[in-house]
């Protein structure tokens, strides 16, 4: 036989109270059948009578804060017949009255595929961490033109290690608070990727920059990574650990990443609003020992001819345009 279920929604968590009596009261007072520790709920707020066969009636016992049934205000001391399911607002608390035969949502199947899942395996998580630390040290090694011992390269990157550790602790800590589990390896993978990917993108960007003799593509890549990497990794982490729906995970990730995203957006706005004049020339300075490039080698004469066409026209048009504007003003 179907039962009446009272669902209390509070801070994203649902509490379910199966009802076996024909008459129950809901409120803050301890003599209620369902006691709600919510300050906007009255001591005796609602009375639910009847059963599923004979029909249910709900009475608003409160004359303090507003009570709504299916978004309609229920006046005080008015008994209202309802059919299930019914949404109730009591004070600032949301409740639902359901039948025990209400269909449940499909089970969220734990994902056991995908690269993030694989990387969250303890072996790969630790391997990824070691590789990230290796990249830190290799980056320092490649950027140092002087002879140093290996330990000096290891030690000098200590701030990077600390940031990685800090980020790992934040993720694992929040995850612990939310899920009551220690999701250590997915957190380790997330933290490692957060630091590893920008390093790899930088290196790839240098190669691409030299290939095209242009910084545009590499700059776009770097900007995308700086803005989107954290929310993407958090989304993967939430989906993997909390088995949330993708949209829900994206929402939470964006929320958590908001300060970082806002920081980058403000930087973009500042750059866009900066004065147009730049003292230094903006030309592609990248060099690569691979010497893999799109452009063919030309003669110096052809280069000067091209320069004359490109620079002559552009610059003079700019000046003529400015002079004309000044004259008009």
């Amino acid at each position: 036989m179907a039962k009446v279920i009272i669902e209390v929604c509070r801070r994203g968590l649902q509490q379910f109270h199966p009802i076996s009596n024909d008459r129950i009261t809901i409120g803050r007072a301890f003599d209620n059948d369902i006691i709600l520790s919510e300050s906007t709920v009255s001591a005796h707020h609602l009375l639910i009578e009847g059963d599923l066969d004979a029909g249910l009636n709900i009475t608003n016992l409160s004359n303090e804060n507003i009570t709504k049934l299916n978004k309609t205000v229920l006046p005080s001391d008015v008994k209202q017949a309802v059919s299930l399911p019914v949404d109730i607002i009591a004070g600032s608390l949301k409740l639902r009255v359901l039948s025990s035969e209400t269909a449940v949502a499909p089970t969220q199947i734990q994902k056991s595929k995908g690269i993030f899942h694989q990387l969250s395996h303890p072996f790969w998580a630790i391997s990824l961490l070691i590789f990230t630390l290796f990249v830190f040290i290799a980056d320092e090694y490649l950027a140092t033109p002087t002879d140093k011992s290996i330990w000096q390269y290891v030690v000098i990157k200590y701030t990077s290690y600390l940031y990685l550790l800090l980020f790992f602790l934040v993720i694992v800590g929040i995850s612990r608070l939310a899920s009551h589990r220690w999701d250590v390896f997915p957190a380790l993978t997330t933290a490692s990727l957060l630091f590893l990917i920008p390093e790899l993108v930088d290196y790839a960007g240098e190669t691409i920059s030299y290939y095209f003799s242009d910084d545009t593509v590499s700059n776009i890549m770097k900007n995308i990574v700086s803005v989107l990497l954290l929310p993407i990794l958090l989304t993967l982490f939430i989906i993997h650990v909390a088995h949330s729906k993708t949209l829900q995970a994206i929402g939470i990730s964006l929320l958590v990443s908001t300060p970082l995203i806002a920081h980058h957006i403000l930087n973009f706005i500042e750059e866009a609003a900066a004065p147009d004049f730049v003292h230094l020339p903006n030309y592609n300075k990248q060099l690569s020992h691979w010497d893999i490039r799109q452009q063919e080698t030309i003669s110096i004469v052809d280069f000067i001819t091209e320069a004359d066409k490109k620079l002559g026209d552009e610059v003079f048009q700019e000046i003529v345009g400015k002079n004309e504007n000044e004259n008009e003003n």
Partner: peptide
């Protein structure tokens, strides 16, 4: 005005140079 630049690879003394 701002600088405008052109970058090409050129041959000088039989060797390739990246020139701007």
């Amino acid at each position: 005005t701002n600088f405008s630049c052109i970058t090409r690879f050129v041959k000088i003394a039989g060797t390739d140079f990246k020139a701007s």
